[in-house]
């Protein structure tokens, strides 16, 4: 099993860092890691495990904490790997992956814009899809959608 082998290698390389690998159907596995181990783990996966291609970075809002999901692809293993870490919602920030995978640039901009996770040492963390100065993070669970009729009533009262 690729998942078991990966787990062994990670435990050898990062003993007692709280990194676990769980199996994921159809994928090489799902790695849960603490935010502090981010960059070391990324470099290890890229250089030693040939995960050269970052597929996407996604933010998920779990109310009390926010999850960042990375999907990696390896051309030699021909498989995907999911990484997942959780940061506290009161001050959600994480080390940027752009120094390891430059393609993380726009994904992290989008994750910051939509879910509000700040990426430290990101070269250019500004709005990507919404206009400059947009104050909300739409993909948070607390952000609700409205029918346009409801919106119009609100505007009229203002």
């Amino acid at each position: 099993m690729a998942t078991d082998e990966l787990n062994q290698r990670i435990q050898q390389r990062f003993p007692d860092r709280g990194i676990t690998v769980e199996p994921f159907e159809g994928l090489a596995g799902r790695v849960l890691f603490p935010p502090a181990a981010a960059l070391e783990l990324f470099r290890f996966l890229r250089d030693d495990r040939s995960f050269h291609h970052l597929s996407f970075v996604a933010g998920v809002d779990w109310k009390s904490e926010r999850e960042v999901v990375y999907a990696l692809w390896s051309d030699t293993e021909r498989d995907y790997l999911l990484l997942s870490t959780r940061v506290d919602a009161s001050d959600p920030h994480l080390e940027s992956a752009t120094s390891v995978w430059p393609s993380a640039n726009w994904h992290e901009r989008e994750a910051w814009e939509m879910v509000g996770i700040r990426f430290d040492h990101h070269p250019d963390l500004r709005h990507l899809l919404m206009p400059d100065g947009y104050e909300f993070h739409p993909l948070l669970r607390s952000f609700k959608l409205h029918e346009p009729e409801e919106l119009e009533v609100k505007v009229r009262h203002v």
């Binding site: 899809l129 919404m130 909300f136 739409p138 952000f143 959608l145 409205h146 029918e147 346009p148 919106l151």
Partner: peptide, 15 residues
């Protein structure tokens, strides 16, 4: 015409 399937979205002009 009226926002279509995206009328509820936060970024779409409803019409």
């Amino acid at each position: 015409t009226g926002g279509g399937p995206f009328r509820t979205a936060y970024s779409v002009v409803p019409g």
